[in-house]
Design a protein around this nucleic acid. Structure first.
Lengths: 205, 205, 205, 205
DNA sequence: TATGAATGAGTATTCATTCAT
DNA sequence: TATGAATGAATACTCATTCAT
């Protein structure tokens, strides 16, 4: 009797490489981040992934599906990163620093915010909801970290969710205006200081 | 010399109506703000302005031209608004409040940031520069107002330009998450408080 | 003052030729008749009409629109033909002969029935209704002619509408099996005879 | 020689279930009848049969093959039905009635004629011939029955083949316009009466 | 026997732009 | 000033078919 583990269908050429589906997703993520949803065509993705358009469609039923999958997985990675940082034992301000660097490096050419919003006008409600959820999860992870610091008395109690929104927002702006500053370093430091002072001086509510 | 009271050329039928060119620009601005550059076609603009596409092309050589003109003029209006507010005599915090309301109201459905960035990948360098300049002018106006407050000792000296960036950024984020808050009022108040504390506690540099 | 009759926009190259729109419609009708709705692409139409696909779309918003217009106008022509024949003064049987010939000649390669039904699965409800209506009108014209003959006592009273359906149906079948007969003449004669006897022997209802 | 009772090869798990190939054929027949050849994709068939597309291709080399097999087998079944009815001993008119009901019920959603013709433009000559043959066989079965009635003096001698074509043609039209009549019953009765009078009054040739 | 992966060629439709009046 | 006609290039998506297991 045959080993029932045997794989059906045509197998991957080289099992050590990324699967075609993963390659497509990876390339798509980069491209969407770089130029945004409407400016990237399925042809662009196919060409860069060195497969035919039909292959892209074999793995992702629609452009929406591909985009949504790309964003959701990206958000999950970012959320994971945030959680990992907050699991550490450093003081909050240092965590924020680490976070800021990690985030800015990871999303090099992109504006996650833009990324999300751009799609809103093109996606189905279901897809939009998925996006929104994954985005929200990210903010919630950050909120949780901040809240913990509030509960630990490290900073005064205030609206931790709003703080997380503002933190992300500040990072983005910094990045968009990178050229106006000497270094990424400068932006991060000054932004964090600014944010920190905002945080530190909230009247308990 | 002609009497400057006298209108040259054939006068518009109804002087209260906008010129065709202005109608087109106005409509285009609204549409671009609503959906972004790539999602609005020249046909959309033409239809909504109730002229033919050819007429749009008569007044604006390319879509880029139209978009750039729309953004630049919008930015000029916003910049003007900022300057007017800062010319007043209220305390800085109150000015920021006024500004926040005015801005959020004016840009109801839109995200200026998105608006600007979206175009970057589609526009020629020349057009991009024009956009960047007009955006910069807006930030500079805000920066100037903040700097004035620093010089007057109203708040401590720090990076006024960064502060202006952060302020705008916070407003946008707030707006995008409007649904997380009870009212526009809440967002503005909390954001301004947060920003204010960031501002107020900067160590002099 | 300019003549207000002046045509706006780019005019037809040669005003004696068919307008582009008419050319497209004519070609499309022929093609759809020959091969049916699903097998004819907008590209096919464009190529045969010697214009670009975009031009076809300039004149007809969708393939459905083009198809519907083609069918409706064809049906109108057929209906008109039927009415003209029935306006004459010959005996009914002769009219049917004339009709049969005219119809078979006009719809050379086609099966109007096929033509109509094929579309049913592809068209919107609105388009389907238009088709159905134009088809119905044709049957009604025939029905009216037959009814007149009944009222005039030329043939016994019976269901004139069913008779018109059957008449058309017989013609089509005859045509589809043309090769089994010697000549178009044979088919027409025998079919009409058959139909005639069916008509002539209906018991009054 | 093997005992013919014994099944060769691995027996099907559940002998009541259709073989995969038969399932595919059955589903395909239904789908093609419903929507016609061009509108049904191999994917549609595969999905509805709950197998993969590759499996369909394992059993049928091409879409043409599948279609042709579907039609030929359908025609064989119909032909068989006709023969069985004509083997009976009722008067011809009653046979036609029975036939009409059986046919209209069996081909519920379809127009066999349409079904056949639609394919003509897509199939190879070889396939077309097969289709034509199986269709012809059906008409011949009907023709034979009618001829027998003529020879038996039940109806006057005339072109039995034409009569069979017309009979089928009339049935179809009736079905397509079902909604214009009260019941299937009405259509059948009236159509048969009409046909019968056509038949009964042919001059001997 | 059955399947997962991949593809080349096509399909309807859109869009920025040009041109002649 | 404004327009009707025309187009080249792109866009999302589909489909019959092949291939290696």
């Amino acid at each position: 009797m045959q080993n029932s583990q045997r794989q059906l269908g045509r197998p991957r050429k080289d099992p050590n490489e990324l699967s075609t589906k993963d390659t497509i997703l990876q390339i798509a993520t980069v491209l969407f981040l770089e130029k945004g949803y409407p400016l990237i065509s399925m042809d662009d993705v196919a060409q860069r992934a060195d497969v035919t358009k039909a292959t892209v469609y074999y793995h992702y039923r629609t452009k929406d599906d591909l985009f949504t999958d790309a964003v959701v997985k990206l958000m999950e990675r970012i959320t994971g990163g945030i959680e990992k940082i907050f699991a550490n034992d450093m003081p909050l301000k240092e965590k924020l620093h680490t976070l800021a660097y990690a985030h800015l490096r990871a999303t090099a050419n992109m504006d996650v915010n833009l990324f999300m919003k751009e799609a809103r006008h093109s996606l189905s409600e279901e897809h939009e909801k998925q996006l929104k959820d994954s985005e929200d999860q990210m903010y919630r992870a950050l909120e949780k970290g901040i809240q913990k610091a509030m509960d630990a008395g490290e900073i005064p109690q205030s609206n931790a969710y709003l703080s997380s929104l503002l933190f992300m927002s500040m990072l983005i702006i910094g990045k968009n205006n990178e050229k106006s500053f000497d270094t990424l370093n400068d932006i991060v430091s000054q932004t964090i200081d600014f944010f920190w002072d905002g945080l530190a001086n909230q009247k308990s509510k």
